[in-house]
């Protein structure tokens, strides 16, 4: 399945929001790679910069106040940051598409679901209206909704069903890259599993690469090949799933695992990471995690850690490991 050629390479990407209250460094010097058919998990707390990353890849960061400050997003060998809006429109919804967090608000309430799926088909494929509707009905069937319901409006569906419609829109043009932004967070637990299963099956069927944004390490273990952990705009650890679960390196990652309740262990109390995410307009100096870090050293508040490859394919942004390398 794995292909050595990378479908998407993000190099030194920085995205800032420039507001009256100050600059929010939503994404700082990010480096990621995704191969064909691969799934990358993007994990972090709310406000860590996951959604901004996703919108950045689509070049849909609301501007103003958001702006891509620097870096490259190389997709199929071409840098998306340099592309014009009209070139990007041919890619959006076609080669790269996105599933949004909240299915209750992501669908246009005054358009039938069929039309909403057909819209993306008509935009990117050379089909007439009837063929597009046909395709929309096919897609609905594929995500487990009777095709005859294409004339229904979003308010006539439940949350889980609406998310299926959103998935149908995202997959209607067989994208090579699918970005799923917490696709199951807004859904009931039982529906979550169904939607995840559906996404996994469709991904296999179409051999789509995927970026799965989540704050749920369980979801990561289930669907991802690689994982990037984000904290305050930085990817602080980036490796494949197996290594992340067997030998997490960054104190924040270790802390995250510590905060998952484990039914098998006798531990009666959770070990949450102490402290809170920093204020996005006022990120601590040096390593942004140092005020909460159990292993913080004096230098951590002074110098920003560099991205360090601690073992082949395992990157950590932490001064602890920069030192051992030397």
């Amino acid at each position: 399945m794995k292909d050595n050629k990378n479908l998407l390479e993000i190099k030194d990407l920085s995205i800032h929001y420039i507001t009256d209250d100050g600059t929010v460094r939503a994404v700082e010097e990010m480096n990621l790679e995704i191969g064909v058919g691969e799934t990358l998990g993007l994990v972090g707390e709310t406000g860590a910069g996951k959604t901004t990353t996703a919108l950045g890849i689509m070049n849909l960061v609301p501007n103003p106040p958001g702006k891509i400050i620097g870096g490259e997003i190389v997709f199929e060998g071409e840098d998306l940051v340099k592309k014009s809006q009209s070139e990007l429109r041919k890619i959006r919804g076609n080669k790269i598409s996105m599933i949004f967090q909240d299915p209750m608000t992501s669908l246009n309430p005054v358009m039938t679901v069929g039309d909403q799926i057909a819209e993306v088909v008509k935009l990117h494929q050379n089909v007439n209206a009837a063929e597009a509707t046909e395709r929309a009905m096919e897609m609905l069937e594929k995500v487990g909704i009777p095709g005859t319901r294409h004339k229904d409006f979003p308010h006539q569906f439940s949350g889980g069903m609406r998310q299926r419609v959103v998935i149908a829109i995202a997959l209607a043009c067989n994208p090579t890259l699918l970005i799923a932004d917490e696709p199951t967070t807004a859904l009931d637990v039982t529906i979550q599993a169904q939607v995840l299963d559906l996404m996994r099956n469709l991904k296999h069927e179409f051999n789509t690469s995927m970026i799965m944004i989540t704050h749920d390490l369980g979801v990561v273990a289930e669907v991802c090949d690689k994982v990037a952990i984000m904290y305050a705009g930085n990817v602080i650890e980036y490796t494949d799933v197996k290594r992340l679960y067997t030998s997490p390196k960054h104190p924040y990652t270790i802390g995250l695992f510590g905060s998952i309740p484990d039914i098998e262990s006798d531990e009666s109390r959770l070990k949450p990471i102490k402290g809170l995410m920093p204020d996005p307009t006022n990120i601590p100096s040096g390593c942004p995690f140092h005020p909460r870090c159990p292993k913080a050293m004096d230098i951590c508040s002074q110098r920003k850690p560099k991205n360090t490859e601690v073992e082949p394919g395992h990157f950590v942004k932490c001064l602890l490991f920069e030192n051992t390398e030397k």
Binding site: T46, G47, T51, P65, P280
Partner: peptide, 8 residues
Amino acid sequence: MSKIKTSN
């Protein structure tokens, strides 16, 4: 990101 901020 910005959405989260405004709702906050």
